[in-house]
């Protein structure tokens, strides 16, 4: 995957952001409580879910063979692979940022880029509980229409990115021997 050219740099950015946040919150005391509350509840969510996700990812990397991923989500997986990618993304398994490491490990094992884009997008915006909430607040027609458009567009985007990004021809060499 991406090599960190300079881990110091990302820490420096983070430190800068932290400093800016502190200054802002001192200047605007009214916004302090909602800001801290939001960060705190996000932190709790992170602590609750991230270790489990990372362990699952580690187990997945070690136990699932590259050939399996290539067979079900690789270039020759066709429509079945696409359907599987949608389905995997739709399982309610938490916020989008936990999907990124999973997507990375699927990619490493030879899944095609189109399927990874579909998986991530489905994860982000096609969730059964979410659709139910949307239906309740915005109506069946709004929900159904938006859902159908989203599915079509996501599929198109996946195929387009794969093609336009030149991912089609790149031979996937597994980075990690299992």
């Amino acid at each position: 995957m991406k090599k960190d050219k300079n881990p110091l740099k990302s820490f420096l950015f983070t430190a800068l952001a932290a400093a800016a946040a502190v200054v802002l919150l001192i200047l605007f005391p009214d916004n302090r409580t909602p800001a801290l509350n939001a960060s705190w509840s996000f932190f709790i969510e992170l602590v609750e879910i991230l270790p489990g996700v990372m362990i699952l990812m580690g187990l997945f990397t070690v136990w699932v063979k590259n050939e399996t991923v290539i067979k079900y989500l690789g270039h020759s997986s066709g429509i079945r692979g696409i359907v599987l990618a949608f389905f995997l993304g739709m399982i309610p398994t938490g916020p989008l940022y936990v999907a990124f490491p999973m997507a990375a490990s699927l990619l490493q094992k030879g899944a095609r880029v189109a399927n990874i884009i579909i998986f991530l997008s489905a994860w982000a915006c096609i969730k059964i509980p979410q659709e139910l909430v949307e239906m309740r607040f915005l109506g069946v027609r709004f929900m159904a229409l938006r859902l159908s458009f989203t599915i079509i567009m996501v599929l198109a985007m996946g195929l387009f990115i794969e093609k336009a990004g030149g991912y089609r021809k790149t031979k996937k060499e597994p980075n990690r021997g299992v």
Partner: peptide
Amino acid sequence: QIALKGTLKMTPALIMLLILIGLLMGF
């Protein structure tokens, strides 16, 4: 080991996320 490495690699980005979310929700 892979899980731990992955977590460590993501940590700065996650801290950044924590800060940004706080600021966005606060303002």
